[in-house]
Design a binder for these strands. Structure first.
Lengths: 130, 130
DNA sequence: GATAAGGGTTCCAGTAATTGGAAGGTCAAG
DNA sequence: CTTGACCTTCCAATTACTGGAACCCTTATC
């Protein structure tokens, strides 16, 4: 199938699929007219990539996971290790955002939000710490 | 003061301060030798920027907030509005990460993590939906 | 006076993962 | 034969820096 069709099926934009070919994540064949020709295995790979990216894995993680996916002699512990590391990174990010959120929502609640210039949000931002 | 000193005080790397000058967020004077010379107002601005970035505001948000900071006739409602929008974006991001986290931690818990190749994580990633 | 250390300067390139757009080739239908 | 929907490649932009090269300024030391 052509790139438009597989794009529909795997959930990735055609542009992204071409990019993934560029960086060596997939290597579709070419038809005589120069069009990329994708087979069922390509569909599996691209679906895999789409899903992994949706779960926030980096492209480099995806590369590792794809290699494991294609290696029939892998140990599931290797996969689990990559996933757990990613989970840790997600948790760190959530904690960081939560901390931002807490500070910011406190500031927002303090601010009158009227037409006077006095503003606790700006006051906080501009405060030079000792 | 020179860039090294103000960098210490405001918490931003010298490189970042130069970048902020490039994009017009600060405009320090220059000494005769061509060195940037920062005053107390520059320190306030850069501290402001450092804090706002720490809270996750984008550079463009910072630009808006800085303009409000410098406008003595601002309405605090304008500041609050920017902050609330940002808060919404943070909440969305947290929700998205939380959803990734839930899915991933479920998969991780299902995976034996031993030296056998069978792996629910890879199975999930490769599954072509509907 | 030479030199070395520790500032400072500019400018160019790279990061992550796409995305947008231009210029142009291909194919099926009317 | 032309129109429209595909496809192709290649270059540039995005966000917010960061690294590095090549070079200048200042001060202290030999």
């Amino acid at each position: 199938m052509n790139i438009g069709e597989i794009s529909e099926k795997c959930g990735l934009p055609a542009k992204t699929i071409r990019y993934y070919e560029d960086i060596g994540l997939v290597t579709p064949n070419r038809s005589d007219n120069g069009y990329r020709h994708f087979n069922a295995n390509d569909l599996h790979k691209l679906t895999f990539l789409c899903r992994a990216r949706t779960l926030g894995f980096s492209i480099e993680d995806c590369r590792i996971l794809m290699a494991l996916y294609e290696d029939e002699t892998r140990a599931s512990s290797d996969v689990k290790s990559v996933a757990k590391q990613h989970l840790t990174r997600i948790d760190e990010k959530i904690a960081q955002l939560q901390s931002m959120r807490d500070t910011l929502s406190h500031l927002v609640s303090e601010c009158a939000g009227d037409n006077r210039p006095d503003c606790p949000i700006l006051n906080d931002l501009a405060a030079v710490k000792g």
